[in-house]
Design a protein around this nucleic acid. Structure first.
Lengths: 265, 265
DNA sequence: ACGTCGATCTCGAAC
DNA sequence: GTTCGAGGTCGACGT
């Protein structure tokens, strides 16, 4: 190893490298788990769960320090080819090309790239401890409903969440209403369509047998997609408007209460 | 515009640019629809279908020529934040930071980035006309079965593909066996589990009423996930091993035949 | 390891 | 425009 880790710069960039240079940077960056960006003319072949080939063209290759691989074209949100993390690599500089193979050993999946021209190779040591927070997931809507069951209706009492129904899957929330009917709540963060109705119906069907009391199914979502109302009525199911925004407010309140309780102790 | 498109280089790279320089490169690259890579210390806020915040850290920002945006951390296949194509941008160089806003007007979604240090800005004009081909999708397995119905069984005759059953969805293939039973085939490219059984059963149930002849349901997949065999037997359904590889060979043959037929004309 | 489900899913096709 | 299903989905969580 010519360059010690301590002295390696945070970023390293070579324009128009030779294939040998590129291979050298790649190998060193992989072993020191840096993020690598290669831009150049390449073709890509994938073999695994399916097979794909991508003819010659200029693209961006990113290899991350966890061994994930992305091949991006000049357009499109999604990578044209990729490999999830924990890949193993083989790098070979040939006379007229650079050959990179990224393999996932257990899944028997390989991604193979041939570069016949490299515009640039960049390697970065990225320091990133920043916390990522996502607000108002379906999970958080569930928390909000558990904290404030009247979001479903007055007198609703949750009993269990994520009840395993075996075949049918998992209910989001099960509980009782004020008349002791069993209530199954299906939560959606986005407007609910017929697939949500089908899902809820599956849950109810798997519960209905052997049940001695009333059973209600409620979809809690910001809205129903059009055409879903009729289906819901046919199935004798119900809808409650529960918006992610409202849930966020409730969770924020709960957070505030937590803090105030802490201060009083 | 200081630099004409004709004279702009295929790749442009600035290390440790000032915020003004970075903003200038970004604006120019956006207007000329080049692919842009910015590496630096940033925080990211997203508001739209959900909300998210990402604290300071060093990341890779990619803006593509269709207006899609990717923010990648040093690990992980998926971008931590993103925006699909057709974004509109606002770029502002401030005293101590570069502010980038990528908005999707109709979806009311915005992604906001603040950089307080920029390691590099790179802009590329990528030429990429390469064709992408994915082999052995479920669609292609269907084609293979339609081309060679004996993949299902000797004497199987497909009648329709993608038959709409309304409520229940679409069958992959419907046909008849040698005893004139109606046969519904559900194709899976990956090992079939109980959800495939349920799906096939839905199709059969929606057909069974008013049917005067025998009805069979067959799952065509490379294999059954374990535990699925019993369910299949209980439901009186059947399984045929149909591998994507075999389908690929058949499609390749068909392709060959096409070519040979062409040569004979 | 397998199974299930959510996702700012994205993308495309059909209606 | 909306709806619907597929995806090399990925990733997380549970068994």
């Amino acid at each position: 190893m010519l360059m010690s880790d301590a002295r390696s710069p945070q970023s390293l960039s070579i324009k128009d490298p030779s294939f040998d240079e590129a291979a050298s940077v790649l190998r060193r960056s992989l072993s020191t788990r840096r993020l690598i960006i290669v831009v150049g003319n390449c073709r890509v072949d994938y073999e695994g769960r399916a097979n794909s080939s991508l003819d010659w063209g200029e693209r961006v290759l990113i290899v991350k320090k966890d061994g994930s691989v992305l091949v991006h074209r000049s357009s499109g949100y999604e990578p044209v080819n990729w490999q999830p993390s924990k890949c193993l690599f083989r790098i070979e500089a040939e006379k007229e090309s650079l050959h990179i193979v990224a393999a996932r050993p257990q899944q028997r999946e390989t991604l193979s790239l041939h570069f016949n021209r490299i515009l640039s190779v960049d390697s970065y040591e990225l320091s990133d401890r920043g916390e990522f927070n996502l607000y108002v997931s379906e999970e958080q809507m569930k928390e909000a409903i558990l904290a404030r069951p009247d979001l479903i209706e007055e007198g609703f009492r949750p009993i269990v969440s994520e009840k395993n129904l075996g075949e049918a899957g998992f209910t989001d929330i099960m509980g009782e209403d004020s008349s002791s009917n069993l209530v199954v709540v299906e939560i959606k963060r986005v407007p609910a369509g017929k697939e949500s109705v089908a899902q809820l119906n599956r849950y109810l069907n798997s519960i209905r047998k052997n049940l001695r009391r009333g059973l209600r199914g409620i979809i809690a979502a910001p809205e129903l997609r059009k055409g879903t109302q009729g289906l819901l009525a046919t199935m004798n199911l119900e809808f409650r408007e529960v918006s992610p925004q409202k849930c966020a407010e409730i969770l924020a309140q709960r957070q505030t209460r937590k803090i105030s309780e802490f201060l009083r102790e």
